[in-house]
Amino acid sequence: MGMTEAILLTIATAATPLLIAAIGELVVERSGVLNLGVEGMMVMGAVGGFVIASLTGNPWIGVLAAIALGVITSLLFAFLTLSLAANQVATGLSLTILGLGVSSLMGEQFVGQAGKKLGNLDFPFLTDLPLVGPLLFGQDPIFYISIALVFGVSWFLFRTRVGLTLRSIGNNHHSAHALGIPVLRYRYLAVMFGGACAGLAGGHLSLVYTPQWVENMTAGRGWIALALVVFASWRPARVLAGAYLFGAVSIGQLHAQALGIAVPSQLLTALPFLATIVVLVLISQNVRATLINTPAMLGRPFVPDR
């Protein structure tokens, strides 16, 4: 494996959890719900995945557990914001506080243990192809799930009736309700999907990226995922681009340091964030397209009146 492939693989691994969590949040936001608790759900997925994988010895069961824990955590958010119409921003932030606390409590006995890594795929012949081989055929299974999610969600939102309904709820829940669409049921499912994705992203961290459990191991990646959704102006393909761009800048700055380039490392560390802002400004120049894609009801509670 040459250096280029190795770097590309590193970028893919760094981008995958961001991508998965962001795709999930994208669906949530398309339904008109803003869940700022991605970090909390993600860290719950990470601890759940690691603990169950350690106990069962099977990383795949760990992946399922990660997804399950993400969903359970998201249900807490859904109950408060959908059933009780609590404020979404405050609830999402509280969810992060709770998730970080509960996960460190759950994982206390597992810190420092060597984890079970979900292995990379290996196809005879195909994986050994130069350049594209390891990238296309030799990565971890969750990488393929992340790519499938991008296409699946894109197809679902823009090519299916249910997806259209979901978007219409996000754009105007009152008229959707008037048409007899069960707004809250759709939103519950969307939030749960977001939770599943965030959980899976967390599982990727503790089972693939760095197969171990440490407290707060998400280290702010949930927030990056949230940023990516807006960055992508709620388009799945742009989330893909954004996640890989962010991954590339993050890895690139480490390489710049290793090459001995004399720039303050703090500036290099801040670079991905600055780059995101710049790209975001460039994208939002196209005001019309952004507005079309922005769910108008984002963050607004809906209570069916009868």
Partner: peptide
């Protein structure tokens, strides 16, 4: 000696990325 600063005492993901970058170089 090649040095990479991650500006954190504890960020498993970033430390792994730094390790990979160093090995790739």
């Amino acid at each position: 000696l090649k040095v990479v600063w991650v500006n954190s005492w504890f960020d498993a993901g970033k430390e792994a990325d730094a390790a990979k970058a160093l090995i790739d170089q």
